[in-house]
Simulated assay, not measured.
Amino acid sequence: MDNKTTLMQQIIRFAFVGGGAFVIDYGVMIFLTEVGGLNYLISSAISFTVSVIFNYIMSVKWVFNVSGERSQTQDFAVFIVLSVIGLGINSLIMWIAVDKFHIFYMISKIGATAIVMVYNFITRKIFLENGK
């Protein structure tokens, strides 16, 4: 991707990539919970991890202006650290919504995803694009 990609173009691309990652995340979570019989927190963590890999590849190739100042391994490590924090936020929101407020896990996941999506865009823009 060239360095002339505007913030608005990045937000639109991030929304498309995020939408794809959400479909993967949500679909795998429901499959593992409903078909596989896993606890919703375990299936949510697994599905989140699968979607992170998709999201990383698409974010680096199509969304953010990654400078190349770091190696791909370093960029992936930064992405993973940011994603683990996002997973923690996701799991905390899921636990509070489901176990404390008794909101159905499929609904809770949508709210958790929206919050983590904002966190993801801001942190990835800061740490991936600027090479910090």
Rank of each mutant, 00 (worst) to 15 (best):
M1T: 14
T6I: 00
L7D: 01
M8L: 10
I12G: 08
A15M: 07
F22K: 01
G27A: 08
V28S: 13
V28L: 12
M29Q: 14
V35Q: 09
V35D: 01
G37P: 04
G37N: 04
N39W: 15
N39S: 14
L41P: 05
A45D: 02
I46D: 10
S47V: 12
F48N: 04
V50N: 15
F54T: 12
I57R: 05
I57F: 15
K61V: 10
V63L: 09
N65R: 06
N65W: 01
N65Q: 11
V66L: 10
S67C: 04
G68R: 05
G68N: 07
Q72L: 14
F76M: 13
F76Q: 09
V78K: 15
F79S: 09
V81R: 02
L82F: 02
V84W: 02
I85Y: 02
G86Y: 00
G88K: 05
I89M: 08
N90Y: 03
W95C: 06
K100D: 13
F104G: 00
S108K: 01
K109F: 04
I110N: 01
I110Q: 02
G111C: 06
A112S: 14
A112V: 01
M117E: 00
M117R: 00
Y119D: 03
N120Q: 07
F121Q: 03
K125Q: 01
I126T: 14
L128K: 10
L128A: 10
N130F: 11
N130A: 09
